[in-house]
C-alpha cells in the first residue's frame, strides 16, 4: 500500500491547472480590452425634445346638438349643464374659492405657498400673485401666468355650490357684478378665463374651446337663461 504519491505527480497536476487559469485570465483581459477599446461614437449634445403630455382633451357638445330638445326651458338647462363642465372644471374653480385662498391642481387642494387674496384679488400688498405668476405660463418652472392673474371676488365663489346655485349667482348682478351682456363677454372673450384652455405645464385644459364655451353660454342666455334645480 502506498501512503504517499510520488512527489512529481501533484506538481504536474498543479502545473496543468495553473496553465488553464492563466489562459482563462488572459482571455478575460483580452476580451475586456477589446470591449473597452472598441471604437464607438462619443455621445453628442442634443436638444431635449419637449414631450407634450398626452392629455385626453375633452370636447364640448356643439349648440346644434341641443336643438333636439323641444322644450325651451329644458334646452336652456341642458345647455347650462354642458357649460357647467367648464365652470366646475378645476382650471376655473381653483380661482373661484369661497375663502381668501385659491386652490390648485386637479385635486383643488389649498394653494402652496400660503397666499391670500388681499384687497384687490391679486394678493396681499406684501405677497402679490406676481411674486411668482408672470404674464405668461413659464414652462421652466411650470408656474402658470396671465397679465390679469387674480382671484374672482368672494361674491363669485363657486366652491361648495351646486351648479344651480352657481347659475343663479351668475344671473344676479349684485353678486356677479355683470349684466347678461357682460357675462357673455366675460365667458367668451376674457383673456384670464381663456387661460383655462391653455393652462400649460401639463395641466389639463377645460373641455372644448373658449369659443365653443361662449357659444353655449350665448345659446343658454338666448333660451331664457334657465337654471338647474
Amino acid at each position: 500500500m502506498r501512503w504517499r504519491r510520488s512527489p512529481s505527480e501533484p506538481r504536474r497536476g498543479r502545473l496543468r491547472v495553473g496553465r488553464w487559469l492563466f489562459a482563462t485570465f488572459a482571455a478575460m483581459i483580452a476580451a475586456t480590452l477589446v470591449y473597452a477599446l472598441y471604437p464607438r461614437p462619443m455621445p453628442q449634445t442634443q436638444a431635449i425634445q419637449i414631450r407634450e403630455p398626452q392629455l385626453d382633451l375633452e370636447r364640448l357638445r356643439a349648440v346644434a346638438e341641443f336643438a333636439a330638445i323641444a322644450d325651451l326651458d329644458q334646452r336652456s338647462i341642458a345647455l347650462f349643464e354642458e357649460a357647467g363642465r367648464v365652470i366646475q372644471h378645476p382650471r376655473c374653480m381653483n380661482c373661484h374659492p369661497r375663502t381668501d385662498r385659491p386652490t390648485q391642481t386637479d385635486a383643488m387642494r389649498p394653494h402652496r405657498p400660503w397666499v391670500s387674496r388681499g384687497p384687490d384679488g391679486a394678493g396681499e400688498p406684501t405677497l402679490r400673485c406676481s411674486t411668482c405668476h408672470g404674464a405668461t405660463n413659464f414652462e421652466s418652472s411650470g408656474v402658470p401666468g396671465n397679465p390679469m392673474w387674480m382671484l374672482a371676488p368672494i361674491e363669485m365663489a363657486w366652491h361648495g355650490k351646486t351648479l344651480g346655485e352657481i347659475c343663479r349667482q351668475l344671473l344676479d348682478p349684485a353678486r356677479s357684478h355683470m349684466s347678461r351682456e357682460e357675462l357673455l363677454q366675460h365667458m367668451s372673450e376674457d383673456a384670464l378665463v381663456g387661460w383655462a384652455w391653455h393652462p400649460g405645464g401639463g395641466r389639463k385644459p377645460a373641455p372644448g374651446t373658449q369659443a365653443e364655451f361662449g357659444a353655449i353660454i350665448k345659446a343658454w342666455l338666448d333660451t331664457g337663461g334657465k337654471c338647474p334645480a
Binding site: R112, P113, S130, T131, C132, S140, S141, G142, V143
Partner: peptide, 20 residues
C-alpha cells in the same frame, strides 16, 4: 418651481422669485 423663496430678488424694487 416657486415653492421655497430661496431665489428671491427685487425686480424694480418688488420681491420676485427669480426661478420663475
Amino acid at each position: 418651481v416657486a415653492q421655497c423663496g430661496a431665489c428671491t430678488v427685487h425686480v424694480d424694487g418688488t420681491p420676485t422669485r427669480s426661478c420663475t
